[in-house]
Amino acid sequence: MSETQVFGMPKVWKSEVHTHYCPGCTHGIAHRLVCEAIEELGIQNRTMALAPVGCAVFMHQYLDIDMMEAAHGRAPATATGMKTVRADKIVFTYQGDGDLASIGMGEIVHAMNRSLPLTVIFINNAIYGMTGGQMAPTTLLGQKSTTSPTGRDAKVNGYPIRVSELLATLAGPAYIERVALTSPKYIIKAKQAILKAFKNQVENKGVSFVECLSTCPTNWGKRPVDACKWLEETMMPYYPLGVLKDFE
C-alpha cells in the first residue's frame, strides 16, 4: 500500500499567510489557479504582476512573485509599461469588475487592442466587494446592491456589461475565455484557461484574457454554497461560459 499526494499547495502560494478574503470568496481559488499555472510553467522567477484596487489589493501578500499595486483601473497601462521595458518577463494583471470594467475600461480596451503579450485575470462578481457591495458595471438587472437598493434599473443605470464579448470584437487579443469558479468541474476548466493565458505569453502570442465568474457571498448576502448556486443560475445565463476568441 502506498500513498501519493494528488493535490497540495502550489509553491508560489505563500503558505504562512492568512488571506483577508471572506469565507467562501472565490478570489482564493483564482489566486491558487494562477499560482499553479506559474509553477507548472516554471516562470516564478520571471513573473511580474499587478494587484488592482479592490478586494485583491493585498494579493501581493499571498503570491511569492514580484508584484506591485496599480492605481484603480490602471493595471493594464502599468503592465504595458513593465512589459515594454522587460519584454523577457511574464507580466499579468489581476482585476475586479469595478477596477477593470468601470474606472479602468479605457485602459483594458487599449491594452487588449495593443496586443503586447500580457495576461489578464478578470474577476467578475457583479458587485463592488471591497467598498461594501455597491453596484458594478456587471451588476445584473434587478440585482440589489447598496447603491441600487431596489435593484439595478436599466433606465437609470444602464445594462450590465459583457466585458469578454466587448473585448472579443477587437483585432488585438490572442485569447479570451469566460470561466467560473463555483464547482470543481468549472474550476478544472478555469485552470486550463488560466494556464493557457500564461502559456500564450511564454510563447509570445499576444494578450490573453480570462474572465472568472466569481462569488461575493458577503455582499450578495448569501451563504458560500448558495452564492455558487446563485451564480450558476442567475449570472451564468447572462454571462455564458466559453471561448470568445482564440487565435489558434
Partner: peptide
C-alpha cells in the same frame, strides 16, 4: 492617465 501609469510600470523595473 494611462501614460503616467505606463511610466509607473516602467519605473518599477
Amino acid at each position: 492617465v494611462a501614460s503616467i501609469n505606463m511610466v509607473m510600470g516602467g519605473a518599477s523595473t
